[in-house]
């Protein structure tokens, strides 16, 4: 039984396809593997949001914003995106300039998301100015180094590897945001999540588009599949997200 949030997401954003052919077929086939993971992400995110709603204090807001700031804040994002800008060689630019154009867009998105997290810390009264975060290791801590390293390394494997990460992981981000927004009424938290949602959607859809349009041969599909396999390993990022549902069930 799929969570209604996931079913809606699949119907609106995953299944409509602008291209026919081996790329779209590959994506839709691979998606079958993700559906249980994405479903668990929704269950876990709803559970966690409800726990937070019943919390006796607001530390979770501060911790969430600090985690967000370190994870997708300006410092980390600029590193991630720059490696990907450089992953397209000049002779390949005719084919892959869209990757660079979308990275240029994404680096701007992600640093803005850092601003949103900083905004929460400012409006919540936890800091008086953003530069205080330079002295707080929680705002810079790289909590999941293998994942951030992956974002830097995949472009060196194949320009389309990144599409796999965008498709699988940014869908996770969208589903979590939608789940949180479905239960949270706190204006500060809604501001933090709502304002990011469409940009995370865009990153997901960019992955969807690149797979549909470009992953046409086994040689181009293989590196994308490898990224999916990695993220779905028991110690991979997507599997880790889905574990929240197991926690919820206990």
């Amino acid at each position: 039984m799929l969570e209604p949030i996931l079913q809606d997401f699949l119907d609106k954003w995953v299944y409509p396809t602008g291209f026919s052919g081996p790329g779209a077929e590959f994506r839709l086939k691979e998606t079958e593997r993700f559906i249980p993971v994405w479903n668990n992400v929704v269950i876990g995110a709803l559970h966690k949001a409800n726990e937070q709603l019943n919390s006796e204090n607001e530390d979770w807001k501060r911790n969430g914003a600090l985690g967000g700031y370190s994870g997708e804040g300006p410092h980390m994002s600029i590193k991630q995106m720059s490696t990907q800008l450089l992953s397209v060689s000049i002779p390949q630019q005719a084919k892959y300039i869209d990757l660079q154009r979308m990275r240029a867009r994404q680096v701007w998105d992600e640093v803005k998301h850092g601003s949103l997290h900083a905004d929460i810390l400012l409006r919540g009264g936890w800091i008086k100015k953003e530069t205080e975060l330079l002295d707080d290791p929680r705002a810079a801590n790289q909590g999941d180094p293998a994942y951030f390293g992956l974002t830097a390394m995949v472009p060196h494997i194949h320009p389309l590897s990144r599409a796999g990460q965008n498709y699988l992981e940014e869908a996770v981000a969208c589903l979590r945001l939608i789940s949180v927004l479905s239960v949270m009424e706190d204006p500060l938290v809604r501001h933090e999540n709502d304002s990011q949602l469409l940009e995370e959607m865009m990153h997901f859809i960019e992955g969807k588009y690149q797979i549909d349009a470009y992953a046409l041969t086994p040689e181009d599909q293989e590196p994308i599949k490898a990224v999916f396999d990695y993220l779905l390993r028991p110690w991979g990022r997507s599997a880790a997200h889905a574990k929240e549902a197991e926690h919820a069930k206990k």
């Binding site: 609106k12 409509p16 026919s20 052919g21 081996p22 779209a24 041969t217």
Partner: peptide, 21 residues
Amino acid sequence: VPPPADVHTDELKWPRKAPKS
């Protein structure tokens, strides 16, 4: 947006084929 059912029929999809090696 999101696309209603009548705008994502099979006939409207752009066909993509694997390039000949």
